[in-house]
Amino acid sequence: MPLCILPWQSLCETHLRRVLDALDVGSSFRADLIRCIMLTALRGSDHGHQQFDMNINLNLATAEEVEMEDISIGGYESDPDQVARGVSRSTIEKLEQKSCSVQDGSGCCCICLEELNGEDKVMEIPCSHLFHSRCIVKWLERIDSCPLCRTRVEVEVPE
């Protein structure tokens, strides 16, 4: 990258984005990478260099590494895979219709670790495990299996 374009930030970004696009780098990671590259470039220009070549070794061997990378540069939101694995809205609605209250002492909701008591709306999912409605719905929106036994929460819920 020619350092003379450095003062024009948007020009640099466009240039880098084009390079990184060709390498199929994900958009969230790309923004951070561009920032890193530009910072390094700015430091280089302080030393009077006119041009620089950068070898970037991206070791993306595992998801773990990528996640750790994300912590250090600050981003990390929901995992798109997980969203895709959630239960459909209609199934959740059907389960919600059946949710009811239970007697005190029915045990503990393993999601929030609070007791299931008479005041709470409790949902029983097809494998018979009980949770607070508000807790299990949040999970089922992400993943379509029971937190305790991993049984898939079927799409067809018996009426």
Partner: peptide, 20 residues
């Protein structure tokens, strides 16, 4: 476990996590 970074390869810390 990465000898460099300490990163752990374990399924329950990734896609096999459960809130239980």
């Amino acid at each position: 476990i990465s000898s460099q970074s300490g990163a752990i390869c374990l399924d329950i810390l990734k896609d096999q996590w459960s809130p239980a």
